[in-house]
Amino acid sequence: MEKKYNPTEKKDTRSGFGAGLSELGKKNPNVVALCADLTGSLKMDAFQKDHPERFFQVGIAEANMIGIAAGMTVGGKIPFTGTFANFSTGRVYDQIRQAVAYSGKNVKICASHAGLTLGEDGATHQILEDLGLMKMLPGMVVINPCDYNQTKAATIAIAEYVGPVYLRFGRPSVPNFTAADQKFEIGKAVTLYEGTDVSIFATGHLVWKALEAWEILQKQGISAEIINIHTIKPLDEKAVIDSVKKTRCAVSAEEHNKFGGLGESISHVLTSEIPSPLEMVAVNDSFGESGTPDQLMTKYGLDTIDIVNAALRAIARKK
């Protein structure tokens, strides 16, 4: 099979968020943005500049930010909150649980610098538990797009959806390979390559690495199906089942703890619907540490080669 993805540029997903938010600001007057002293890091500057009356700087007070956002929805506003993933979830879990999720409020919790690729700041800032925390909340939609274009499209799409959403993205520049004009469908998995030997379900930054793994596997005569799960919840269970029916084994790949993340969601579907071998590429129940993003992805087993090896293990376990 021909290689289909040849991106010429690398961009950060957080800039995709900033671009999407800026576009939303122009077309939807109900969209408001709140930030906890990280406007530049979240790339919210353009929105702030163009719509100062709809931008709310709350200072380093994330709990208050979530509460204010919940209150704004009462008056029909669509608040987008912005801070690092760690401070967007763990720090304000109770506020999100009560004032947003349980209250059914239309708040979009937008979280940058998720996972290990935050890099040198170290484990205090590298949350690897956020997907699990958010997906456990009833009614919460959890999205982790893979590149700049998809993050921009997701940002625009979630404004149309009524209900709480957690949107996760990151700091490093990664290949921008999805279409600029894509339509983002919440809960709809995207098949990037069809294959017959193994299904590789990847999310976020690991999607590009899964595409790299596809090439290596193909050279070894292995046909891998690559599926981008940009929505962790609601999970596209049909896409998972249909793919594994064909391949009979699976790999999950994510920049998250193996507990609570995408792998666990896939495992749930497989065990109840189509019991099959699953190998998880994820952080092995550990905190991160300081280092460059690339060094960390290697040390914690989230590299292209780790996906390749997981695929080989999954195939070997097939009966």
């Binding site: 709310f56 208050n64 509460g67 204010i68 209150g71 929805t73 009462v74 506020q95």
Partner: peptide, 12 residues
Amino acid sequence: QGMSVAIGAALA
């Protein structure tokens, strides 16, 4: 949590 929520509603 209610004061934050009230502030949000007031801002709206």
